[in-house]
């Protein structure tokens, strides 16, 4: 047994140095948030600030309008995540049904669109949302953000659901559960790892989104999100780097919280479900 413990602990010798190197630039970013602009730009390479300052955070709070923008960002991100989870899981479930006519065409179209660069489709998207009268609200922005983000989640859910042993579903059906009930009570709970992943990725994407929240709140800048607010640090020629670093630190915190929260779903897996 001792040898086993030893063998397992050897991995730490590999992982610890790797992680230290890995996190170094990130730590640098955090430390820059506490430095004066002068020290960050022309000071040495030291990670510890000579004279730590909280000015940057104060500036970040006002410049990026964190007080108003944070609520918007949360609303926007959660709306996007819910939209994507609901729409992608239903679609993925449907597409995982064996022998569904038209499935190949749909999946083909989904995959094909993955390769079209999206940045420049913003103008037609804007025209659609404007036509729907959603031009100045976060819902329009959330729809526009969720639409193109669907492909991968749909494929992930499809891959996952088609990998679930069929006897599980048969058992549910014999218990008298219908299509909807099977999906909601049996299949969806099994899909936790995928849901966690999809939620996390779309949360990050929405949290940092720039183009869509900018373009869809033109008439109502009070509805903008942090991703847009961050650009308050850029001027035409110069950038307030330490302020930006502070803002980056603040805006990373919620994502880390969400990550730690969703961690569980990566750990639990479906082992228990298969046995029962």
């Amino acid at each position: 047994m001792n040898r086993l413990v030893l063998r397992r602990n050897i991995w730490h010798l590999l992982l610890i140095p790797l992680c230290l190197v890995w996190i170094y630039p990130f730590v640098w970013m955090v430390s820059a948030a506490f430095k004066t602009p002068r020290e960050m730009l022309i000071g040495g390479l030291s990670l510890l600030p000579d004279e730590a300052t909280l000015d940057n955070f104060a500036r970040a709070w006002t410049t990026a309008k964190f007080s108003t923008y944070t609520a918007n960002t949360i609303t926007f991100s959660i709306a996007v995540v819910i939209l994507v989870l609901l729409v992608a899981s239903t679609a993925g479930y449907a597409l995982a049904r064996p022998g569904l006519p038209g499935k190949k065409v749909l999946v083909g179209v989904l995959i094909a669109t993955m390769f079209v660069p999206h940045g420049y489709t913003i103008i037609p998207t804007f025209i659609v949302v404007n036509g729907l009268g959603l031009g100045n609200g976060l819902l329009g922005a959330a729809l526009a953000q969720a639409g193109p983000a669907l492909v991968v989640p749909v494929l992930l859910f499809m891959g996952f659901f088609s990998g679930i042993p069929k006897e599980l579903e048969e058992a549910a059906r014999m218990d008298g559960a219908g299509y909807l009930r099977t999906y909601w009570r049996v299949m969806l709970p099994l899909a936790k790892p995928v849901m966690g992943t999809v939620a996390l990725m779309n949360f990050i994407g929405a949290w940092n989104a720039f183009f869509i929240p900018l373009v869809f709140t033109l008439g109502n800048p009070d509805l903008r999100t942090l991703g847009v607010g961050m650009y308050g640090f850029y001027g035409q020629d110069t950038t307030d780097w330490t302020g930006l670093a502070a803002a980056a630190c603040i805006s990373v915190v919620p994502i880390v919280v969400v990550f730690l929260f969703l961690q569980r779903t990566f750990v639990e897996g479906i082992a228990g479900a298969v046995k029962s």
Binding site: L83, V87, T90, L95, V128, L143, G147, V151
Partner: peptide, 15 residues
């Protein structure tokens, strides 16, 4: 599939 087709059609395929 309807929600996906609507959302995806409107915001990805159409653009």
């Amino acid at each position: 599939l309807i929600p996906m087709v609507l959302l995806f059609g409107g915001f990805t395929v159409w653009p």
